[in-house]
Design a protein around this nucleic acid. Sequence first.
DNA 1: TTTTCAATTTTGATGCAACAAAAAATTACG
DNA 2: CGTAATTTTTTGTTGCATCAAAATTGAAAA
Lengths: 228, 228
Amino acid sequence: MSQNRNPQEDTPGKSAALGDQAYAVLKEKLLRGSFRPGEKLTVRKIAQEFGLSSTPARDALNRLAIQHALVYAGPKTVVVPNLTLSQLREVTEMRLALEGLAAEKGASKTSPEMLAQLQEAQNRINSALDRQAYGDALWANKEFHFLLYGRSNMPILISTIEQLWLRIGATFHHLYPDFAISRLGVSNHRAAMEGLQNGEPAEVRAAIETDIRDGYRQLRRVISEQQS
Amino acid sequence: MSQNRNPQEDTPGKSAALGDQAYAVLKEKLLRGSFRPGEKLTVRKIAQEFGLSSTPARDALNRLAIQHALVYAGPKTVVVPNLTLSQLREVTEMRLALEGLAAEKGASKTSPEMLAQLQEAQNRINSALDRQAYGDALWANKEFHFLLYGRSNMPILISTIEQLWLRIGATFHHLYPDFAISRLGVSNHRAAMEGLQNGEPAEVRAAIETDIRDGYRQLRRVISEQQS
DNA sequence: TTTTCAATTTTGATGCAACAAAAAATTACG
DNA sequence: CGTAATTTTTTGTTGCATCAAAATTGAAAA
């Protein structure tokens, strides 16, 4: 749990204010899909939960709302977002453009250590899937992707991608109570690592794009069923 | 001056809070490059300037800082950002991917009215350049681009692009005290409109990409000179 | 039973004062 | 005269009380 507002993009100063912690925790829960979409969050409830006054609690919620990690359902009601199909489609197109770019750039700066790290992340994905620990699987999956993107040395790009993940994060919640996640992207990840090993950035990009498209189909199904 | 937090992406509720106005005004000034990069902004100064207490003023500054429209220079000092060359390069690559996408999507949903609006915006750009009113020229230029992007019906994409413009906005400040802006993108804009008229989205995308690259070269020159 | 309207409670926004930490200014020392 | 230490000022953060607006509940009427 980092007390930094954004692990990717440095924030030179900005000591860990009290409200930053609440922000970080909430953000992580949102990313992992721990919240039920549509769940209502109030200043006072957060304040009580974290044991602080309303000012920093309100800060944390506001920050998340600005990033659209939370959305307004009414003038005085912030809720965990529930993506519509058209929003999911839009985010997917953006992810293809942005993560494609990040993957290609990251792949062009490969190293043996990174490959090992990726493999390690993949192992964790597999083991989590075996244990049916879908939350962990999603988490490790996130690490796999951002490990690759991180090599691009493009902090702004990465933080923007993170924003997109934040938006879809809550939707994952629908994924793991009932639905089994198929071995999402195992072969895609393997293809990415192969491309990496052989110094073929375009191949890595293609693999990641396919991975994104596969994930899109999964979520699309969930959202369709959930909307009906 | 809209009291809405984000003109592109709807925010159903969220009445125009007091601090929202300060936020909107500051954001606009940032976008137009009215601030000198490196300029220090303090809570109390903003509070006094807008005639409010520290709480909403602090809110406004915080929001801008989250979006990186302002950055921390120290633990207690937010300043108007001064892009480095590498940041400019990064933003440019992201703009190419994102605005290219938006342009192409927007172009595929063209209409005669839009063409007229674009032409009107272009006229305003030209007249502003004649008057050497560079602030106005930049403003009309922004309108031209977002008019096109707006047709894409992709609000998330558009707000993300706006974020990027927010980041580079302040850099424009260096542009217009001394430097004359060459007729930036006049021919590119014409090419875009032509492609639009002929129903060639790919052509529009190419024109916009060229426009972005041209603008990049301009800013690169300014930043290089300013850094030395 | 359903709908409408009023009363009640909840909730976000704001101003303000107090506090701690960081900046800036000033002084002392080399 | 320049540098380091110290004092003074500035500044962000937080808690809390208050207010207005919105959400919720409940009652009354159709």
